[in-house]
Design a protein around this nucleic acid. Structure first.
Lengths: 169, 169
DNA sequence: ATCGAATGCTCAGCATGCTGAGCATTGGCA
DNA sequence: TGCCAATGCTCAGCATGCTGAGCATTCGAT
């Protein structure tokens, strides 16, 4: 018979999903006591570079505006984030960190949790190459091309992070 | 100390999540017309190797039994899968493919969609190394160690029914 | 200046994940 | 043999994703 999980190709997607889930879980376990989720932390880390609209956040995270809207609503309800009128465009809502949010972010920053990279390195995996593969895949598969835009360039060595796709659409 | 998206480590989890989401989406778009989700397809592909319990499926997919239970309920409601009493253990429910489910699986098998690997290869990424990195990460992070075990090794022989392991399309 | 398309956001509804609780069956040990 | 922990599954409830629809604002072309 066919004791195979399917075309070889299927394996990659499966592994990707499992790995992402495990990493997210690990983060959530560490973040639970602070009342924030992994998704929330990522949003907050982006906001740490300055206020933006939900639209820009959605593009940056590669999720829909509905999803980002709800996540932000949660962050807002816990007081980590604030939504106010956008200075020039009344359709938009400007999102920014509150003092409490900034404090939490800084705290997480300091602990500098290393959940994945140490494990990879300890097992002889080239982390940079691994990240590059992921970035390549994302760039190639992203349906909305390079919509994410005017976030300030990330200062450090993370060369080609997702959000770095330039070119406002 | 600069406008960074967080410790460098954060980037990996972010990329992983985004990539997994994009791949899942791509699959779902292709599977929608068949009334199956990516998660469902993966379950079905495992069942293609023979009936098992929900417990074993959960371990195999690295998700909780509650999650697998609901996914299977959906597959059952669309007639792709069947649950019956387990032959020896009345706590368990034996899950197996129906004729319709097997047909759909074979069909997806034949088309042999290549969503990720071609892209990676076209961009000079070593797919095997990429998979190896993912597997390493999963093995190291999996909280339930090696509970998923008694399923036949995935890569075994190749006298498969529809012979679509690769090379197609 | 006006009208229609594009854009930004929200609500409603569905699917996958997870945790927490609770029920039935098994299985090990006194 | 009898009892209690472990195991397999389900229900309830929450969070993140997505699609589809609908509303308000802005932009662009006439």
């Amino acid at each position: 018979m066919s004791p195979e999980p399917g075309p070889d190709e299927w394996v990659t997607g499966r592994l990707l999903g499992t790995a992402a889930r495990l990493v997210e879980q690990a983060w959530n376990n560490r973040l639970r006591e602070h009342g924030v989720s992994h998704a929330g932390l990522i949003v907050m880390s982006t906001l740490g570079r300055g206020a933006t609209s939900q639209r820009d956040l959605a593009d940056d995270q590669h999720v829909t505006e509905q999803t980002i809207g709800r996540t932000i609503a949660h962050l807002e309800s816990t007081g980590h984030v604030l939504r106010r009128a956008h200075p020039t465009d009344r359709r938009r809502r400007s999102v920014e960190l509150t003092a409490s949010g900034a404090r939490l972010l800084a705290q997480m920053f300091d602990t500098g949790e290393r959940i994945t990279d140490d494990i990879l390195q300890a097992n002889g995996v080239d982390v940079d190459a691994f990240r590059h593969s992921l970035t390549t895949l994302i760039k190639a598969m992203d349906p909305i091309g390079g919509r994410s835009a005017d976030l300030p360039p990330t200062g450090a060595d993370d060369g080609d992070v997702v959000g770095a796709t330039s070119g406002k659409r």
